[in-house]
Design a protein around this nucleic acid. Sequence first.
DNA 1: AAAAAAC
Length: 743
Amino acid sequence: MPKNFDPKYSAKGGPSKGGSKSPGHRGHNAAEGAPKKARWNAGERADRAAGRPTGNDRPAYGNGRPAGNDRPAYGQRSERPAYGDRPNRDRPSTGGAPRGDRPSYNSDRPRNDRPSYGNDRPSYGDRAPRTDRPSYNSDRPRTDRPAYNNDRPSYGDRAPRTDRPAYNSDRPRTERPSYNSDRPRTDRPAYNNDRPSYGDRAPRTDRPAYNNDRPRTERPSYNSDRPRTDRPAYNNDRPSYGDRAPRTDRPAYNNDRPARTERPSYGDRPARTDRPAYNNDRPSYGDRSARPERGGYDRSERSNSDRPARPTRSASDGGHSSNFYPDRDTKAHFAAGDDVVLERLEAIATTAAEVVGVSFGDLGLGENIVRELATLGAATPFPIQAATIPDVLAGRDVLGRGKTGSGKTIAFGAPLVEKLLENNGAKDRKMARKPRALILAPTRELALQIDRTIQPIARSVGLFTTQIYGGVPQYRQVSALQRGVDIIIGTAGRIEDLIEQGRLDLSEVVVTVLDEADYMCDLGFLEPVQRILRQTKKGGQKLLFSATLDKGVASLVKEFLINPAVHEVAGEDQASSTIDHRVLVIEHRDKSAIIGQLVDRQGKTLIFSRTRAYAEQLAEQLEDAGVKATSLHGDLNQARRTRNLQMLTSGRVNVLVATDVAARGIHVDDIDLVIQADAPDEYKTYLHRSGRTGRAGKSGTVVTLIPKQRRRRMDDLLERAEIEASFTNAAPGDTSVSDLAGL
DNA sequence: AAAAAAC
């Protein structure tokens, strides 16, 4: 095992020596016998630089990566794009123009002011854990970092840095995709080249046994790598787990719980036939085949391909029927780019009026959880929570749809914790116990955010969570797993990676949640999600949630869910929305000016762009214009992604320009304006982007900028989204634009 | 056509 993933080399172990323990660091002080780190020599670099064609058709980095090819075959892994050959990953689209032809926007800035991150060490994500210092993602004060940028020229009229941690000044410009730079490629970080090999790792059996009898108090905080600063303030006064009294003082959960019969009955509710069946003639996905031939991971001992057939779903079950596949005879094949409204799920609708006076305790949650929810600001259940919690507690598979910002995380999170508690409770504190619940999210930021909500709930009853997502060193995640966690919250890639490495075993996962479930069924996500679900315990409970849940999830439901209860909240339509939708029809050349005019305001603004490059460019433009703005997109490393999102949350910037990585699930308090600099192509994208504002009943405005030739398409999209928006022709300086900024 | 997701 490479030592950087071996917990016995953790910061706690061993006397401190000079230099970095991290092989990826310049100051690395190699231990005796440590293998010499392979580096590229100048000739190799030159060969590489010379041989690389421009544009996206260049050979994939991943092809040359070490170790990848001798790894055991793993499902259809090889079909997935390798990390290194994602187009645009480390080089944004430049349209193929040679870099030297383009003006360098900052070419007069002295290079030596910049940290030379890229030259001789791997990028953050690849770097081995810095065991000799706190994680770069942690909340440690900046002052313990070398102040490499203190002499950097100021960015114009920006306020002096001295009064606060220099959040921007330590932002190495070279880490940012250098959209406009004429910098030669060769000084970029070589993402995959000198990274330690994983594929030839020795099998699990040679891993050191971890002491099962190690006292609990030695456990560091599982989530110490989580940036504390972006936690909502409501957690700050929560007692830490370590201080908490032993679990024996916990009230007996099952005894004081009201009988099930006290909970509101849903079964006698009339079906949704009173709603306009606007979608009934839409093609259905219900007949999509569930790829039965796929055996999941090719590691035979974990293969679920021989799993017994699921019981046949019955069409009715005590009023909870989902009637999920009413028509299996229609075929549906959509060309890429089609934006269709899939058939609506037949669901049990809960109205806000029905849940008046119902408490979380009434729904079946235990005392500690209820108390923790109150601390989190959830005193009484929202409708979607009241609707789904009893069914989750009853062990049913559940599909839940509640509009953006309606409290879905607690709707699945709180009962999930309660279920685990009932099932073996928090008594099992064994080291390396297998996780019993899994929550999958499409983006890392969302996984982090979900954990921020679930973790306090879990801790309130003595259960542990950990995040498993990419872009950060896996060491902490692996050691958390080795100490033993109950709930995994993460994204698909890293979870599969750890499964493949034999470091994560989902075989005891009895509750699995897919947040943004419809998105998780999209091309590119579906197969990893299927592979992961196949790893979970047979017959385990599955919960699928999304604001736009529809029959796109049919393939998953078909394979993994049994007679799911489908819930939604009545009256969640445009008329009840707190969002004001506007479309500005503009000349393309005016886009920047109009955005500048729109963001000239007090509140928080989230701007969506279609591409990473434009998000970056727009953020820089706004910064240059004196607006405090930053960006969020997949070209940033995870530390920067986390930090930049935190900058909006904390109010250090008022404007965040993001790609659709921020479209789903991300909650930032008090975003009152969403600008779509590029109109979305899909109505769901519109709904999710706009759902970043108007959350939990607050008001918000969504402004979509379109060129006039897109008007028709926009009309159609809004119709699919069932949104009524006003169209206005606008030019820079128009009062109609500044009025919007004033909203 | 883009974005996301592993090291």
